[in-house]
Structures are given as C-alpha cells and as structure tokens.
C-alpha cells in the first residue's frame, strides 16, 4: 500500500480562519476560475437531469397524456400499493438482484484479472492484438450472441456437450438452456465473455498512469511478478476500482432486460424475467404510464439508497468515495 499515490497526504489549501464569512468570499474570489468552470454545468445538469423529474408526479396520478396537469386525477400511493402487493414483482426483483450480484462479483474480478495479466504481457504487439480482439464481442449484438450460445450449448450436437461426453464427464447431453436454476450463472458467464475486454479497458488506462519508477523500485527489492502485481499494480488502480464499484452498486436494480430476454426461454422464465421487463410489460406497453413511473421511482429511490450506503461504507473503510 505504501506505494499508492492515492494515499499520499494531500496538501490542503488554507481554508479555516477566524473571520469565516470574510474568508468565504475571499476564497470564492480566489476560486473564481473554478466557479466559472463549474457553474454553467451546474445549470446544465439542473435543466437536463433535474427539470424532467416533475414527471415523477405521474406515479401519484392516473396519468393520461392528453390531459393537462390540472386535469389529472390524483391517486396517492395506489400504484405503489399495487406494485408491492404483486407476487410477480418479488419474483422479478429476486431475479434482478441475483443476476446483478453475480454480475457485480464477476464484473469486478474477471476484467481486473484479465487486465492485470494483459499488463504483464511483454510483447507490445501481442498485447495490442489481444486487447483489440478481446473487445470485439462488445460490438456483437445480443441477438447474435444469444443464438451462438444456444447453438454451442445445444443438446443435439452442441460443442460443449460433445466435449463433455468425449472426455467422459457425462453420459448424456445436458440441456443447459432448459434448466431454470442454471440461467443466472449461464447469463453471467456469457455476459463476461462478451464484455470482459471492454470492461478491462478502463483498468488498463488506470495502469498506464502508474509511475514506472515504482516497478523499478520493486525490482530492486527483489519482488517477483505476482508480488509486483499485488503490491504495486493493484493498489495503484484501487481508486478506479472503488469508484466503479460504488457507481455499479447504485445500478443493481436497473440491468436492462435485453440479454435476459434473448437468452432465456419459456422454461427459464421463472429465473430470467427481470424488473425492467416487468416495467415494460405492465407499464408503458399497456399505456399504464403511472404504474411504469412508480416502478421508475422505486428504482431511483433504491438506487440512491444503495449509492449512499456504498459511498459511506467505502469512505469509512477505504477513504475512497465519489461524493
């Protein structure tokens, strides 16, 4: 840890002084450039991200798009009560959280390990080549990937089953895509296959910022490759990892539905239906804007709670945070 730049004590500019009010304006004047650089964006963010939030009022109305605001019928928490008393909601919530957590665990180990190992590749050409190839699947649509996966895992001549049978692990082909309880794991694995290279880019960029002198020093100390990776590379990208982790935790309930929908089938529905699909099916697609918005509000509230918790925990334990 001692090599990490993130933990170096940061010099703090003089802030607290006896005449507080005066010094506040004095500092503000000193920071006029910073103000100039941020205030336009504060206004921008307010307009584009906060203004539209008046739409949350839909969740408490029986919203009809052609009526004006004053003509809408207000219903209080009716849509939330409906949502929370629906068994299906809890099923899709369970699936969403399960796949999110698996995704979080896999998404924060596999790409990092891959990036660490790739960083150790000596040949610059080979390194670039592997990197370029590994990010290609990110650009292949889920429709294509889902079809490839079903073919590979097919009972009838699928590569995986043929292989397992050939080396004698199984006697009979396994119907991978027909086992509901396996779905979460298959989806997570496929997701990593598709996104590993793409996710690793950010860690590689962080590694590129590491001061080579640190490696030199480690070499002088006689540290091996694995040791260097553990003691220098990993701590140096720590803050990037934590920032990404905090931001991802906030998104646990919003994971989209496309990949689950395309990879799943009617045998796996119990495990593959997720919250976003539920919101689509029971919300806007039925013209139930208010119900759809209620799910959106629920998502936002949960997200922000998760974000604050993650941020707080990280701040306390690692001194890193985004806010």
């Amino acid at each position: 840890m001692k090599h990490s730049r993130g933990n170096q004590p940061l010099p703090v500019l003089p802030a607290a002084s006896p005449a507080r009010r005066n010094s506040f304006w004095k500092t503000a004047l000193q920071q006029r450039w910073l103000y100039l650089m941020s205030i336009p964006f504060i206004i921008y963010v307010f307009i584009f991200n906060y203004l539209p939030l008046w739409g949350w009022t839909y969740a408490f109305q029986n919203y009809k798009p052609h009526l004006s605001f004053s003509e809408q019928q207000w219903v209080g928490f009716e849509h939330f009560v409906r949502l929370f008393s629906d068994d299906k909601f809890y099923q899709v919530l369970r699936n969403t959280l399960a796949m999110s957590f698996l995704g979080l665990i896999a998404g924060f180990t596999i790409p990092i390990i891959f990036a660490l190992l790739l960083n150790e590749v000596r040949s610059s050409f080979f390194k670039r080549f592997v990197q370029t190839v590994s990010y290609l699947p990110h650009f292949v649509s889920w429709v294509v990937v889902a079809s490839l996966v079903t073919t590979i895992l097919s009972v009838d001549g699928g590569v995986v089953n043929d292989l397992l049978m050939a080396i004698g692990i199984i006697d009979e082909p396994i119907n991978f895509m027909g086992k509901g309880s396996w779905f979460w794991y298959i989806l997570t694995a496929v997701d990593q296959w598709k996104e590993m290279g793409w996710s690793a880019i950010i860690y590689l960029a962080a590694m590129a910022g590491i001061d080579p002198e640190l490696y030199e020093a480690a070499k002088v100390d006689g540290a091996g490759r694995l040791r260097t990776m553990w003691n220098i590379t990993l701590p140096s990208i720590r803050s990037t990892i934590i920032v990404l982790l905090i931001m991802s935790i906030g998104h646990l309930t919003t994971i989209g539905f496309e990949k689950q929908f395309l990879l799943g089938n009617n045998l796996t529905k119990e495990y593959s239906d997720v919250l976003d699909l539920y919101a689509l099916n029971y919300g806007i697609q039925m013209g139930r804007y208010s119900f759809g918005t209620a799910i959106g509000v629920f998502n936002s509230v949960v997200s922000i709670i998760l974000l604050l918790v993650a941020n707080g925990v990280m701040k306390r334990t690692t001194k890193e945070s985004i806010m």
Binding site: V45, F46, Y50, W54, Y58, H251, Y289, S300, S303, L307
Partner: peptide, 20 residues
Amino acid sequence: SVFLALTMYLSAGLIPGYML
C-alpha cells in the same frame, strides 16, 4: 459531486424528457 452523482440514478421517464 452529490448533485452530479444523483443524476446517474434519477430517471424521469420518456415523456418528461421528450417534453423538455
């Protein structure tokens, strides 16, 4: 920081965004 961070999780929905 807070003002900005929250925008990642606040989604107003399609119609208000469109109206804006």
